[in-house]
């Protein structure tokens, strides 16, 4: 906590109760909203339409760094260990996360394979790497030069990461398959379930406004604005 200069820059205001007002434009209704105390914890809502402007929580950088590390480890576990084993009359089929998607390609289910690969492996992987690449350096006190690109990709890729939907799909197909044979959940499934919750918590904690503020601060320091 001590190393982080941006943390101090961003959070000292709160500690010394110096409220610095800022103006936010509501994304849903175009209302200009004055936020007189943006460093207070909690959710800020548009007074006109009631949609969420942003959410501010203490220690966002630390939490995000910890969560993205956890997500990266869980991602590796998910893709290394077998996901589900399925037994019917003595013969066993074991499915790994990535090998089962490769199997889809082998069966020429191209569109299905690409959709599953992108939404459950590639995009979550990119998001985890970018979160780690963004909040790792921030935790140790400097803003990486690729922060703008990282934030852009993170914003654009958000709707296409569908790990939570995939988890529901796994449960549904497990109930379907239980009638045909025995299902043995692998280590990977447990790691995957935890990863879904870690990613959801990350999404709630992530405050892009705060990181954009840090980008602004850096630009001002370098005399670009």
């Amino acid at each position: 906590m001590g190393y982080n200069i941006f943390h101090n820059l961003y959070f000292q205001k709160e500690d010394s109760n110096v409220a610095e007002a800022m103006i936010v434009c509501c994304h849903e209704c175009d209302e200009l909203v004055k936020v007189s105390n943006p460093h207070r914890e909690g959710r800020f809502k548009c007074p006109n339409c009631g949609s969420l402007l942003f959410r501010h929580r203490k220690g966002m950088v630390e939490k995000m760094f910890a969560l993205s590390l956890a997500a990266a480890i869980l991602f590796m576990l998910t893709n290394y260990f077998p996901f589900l084993s399925f037994q019917v009359a003595g013969s066993t089929a074991e499915a790994n996360f990535v090998t089962s998607i490769v199997y889809l390609f082998q069966k020429h289910e191209w569109l299905l394979g690409v959709a599953v690969l992108m939404t459950t492996v590639v995009i979550p992987f990119i998001r985890i790497v970018l979160m780690l690449g963004l909040f790792g350096p921030l935790y140790f006190g400097y803003l990486p030069h690729y922060a703008t690109v990282a934030l852009k990709v993170l914003t654009h890729s958000l709707p296409w990461a569908m790990l939570d939907v995939f988890l529901v799909g796994v449960f549904v197909s497990m109930v379907k398959l239980v009638k045909m044979g025995t299902i043995i959940p692998g280590t990977s499934l447990w790691a995957f379930m935890v990863m879904v919750f870690v990613m959801a918590y990350m999404q709630v904690t992530f405050n892009a406004h705060a990181v954009w503020d840090m980008v602004d601060t850096k630009r001002k320091q370098r005399g670009l604005v």
């Binding site: 089929a93 069966k107 289910e109 299905l112 599953v116 995939f166 799909g169 796994v170 197909s173 398959l177």
Partner: peptide, 27 residues
Amino acid sequence: KWSMVDVYVVAIMIALVHFGGLTQIEA
């Protein structure tokens, strides 16, 4: 994005159920 559930179910079933030609699932 929640309507993707059924697509995922099909994908998982195809990936899991293949026993040497006895039982095959196709999309």
